[in-house]
Amino acid sequence: MLQSQIDRIARATPPALAARVRGLSDRAIAWLFVAPSILLLLAINIFPLIWTIRLSFTNYRVNRPNQALEFIGLQNYTRILTDSDIWLSMQATAHFLIWTIALQVLIGFSLAYLINKKFRGNNLWTTIIVLPMMLSPAVVGNFWTFLYQPQIGLFNYAVSFVSGISPSSFSMIGSTTLAPWAIVIVDTWMWTPFVMLICLAGLRSIPTSIYEAAECDRASNWRQFWTITFPMVLPFLMLAVLFRGIENFKMFDLVVQLTGGGPGSITELTSINLKRAAFEQWRTGYASAYAVILFVTVFGLASIYVKALNKVKQR
């Protein structure tokens, strides 16, 4: 049946085309098939990257089409790297990155460890826990502004209930001390389930026979955790850290909805800062240099991290 279909197609192929295809090597045909994907990749990834690098050495502004394009060397890079506001923005990003990852790993792994135990309603709890990560970040940011509202916000009331402080006496997103933590809390609430799922996959991939052998050797639960569970889940955990690290380095929507980068510039993460330079101030050349710096930073850190991850996997 299949053979006859192939014969039919072969007969329908014009002789000239068939001759041309017959003349191609396997390698050429392979290139022919991957060429569209490569071209697409070049057009939407590589070309914009090269173009961005080129623009980063110019004074180009997209809203001034009549202005002459000048090559200004490393001026944009010097300006960015010597700008104290940019470094404050980097600090805000580092604070956000470190704390969200630490909390998400800790809580995510703990939840995965609990969920991995067999108990009634296990599936229902898993579903409830993963709900936040299914929501849109913009929606999450928006409704957390209500939760943080000092007069009607549930968060403030919960804190008040536990601590006895008046709910309207503090503003999570209006205070320079609390706002950096306000964004950490929301991101942790939203993305801990993601880390939990990855850890759960790691925990479920550990063969039970290893635990059985450990029990035969009379290893305590504590010892089993540190010598079996943790080392075997570690590559998964590191992968989760990599994903969350990259994601949170470019965090934008959630924080914009929550604080708009304020109060002042306390929660103005690098991506918000970059967006303002590129699409509010229209300093295209400057913003391109900024983007290149961030790209190199993320790429460099991620490469080092992936090498470490591979070493852990090989152990």
């Binding site: 809203n63 320079t176 002042g264 510039s265 303002r276 509010e280 101030q281």
Partner: peptide, 23 residues
């Protein structure tokens, strides 16, 4: 001015830093 957006963003930052963020 054609640069109004940059002028505005700088103002937003300076004013918010002082008025709201107490800096």
């Amino acid at each position: 001015e054609p640069s109004y957006a940059s002028l505005l963003q700088a103002t937003q930052k300076r004013f918010h830093n002082y008025v709201v963020a107490d800096q």
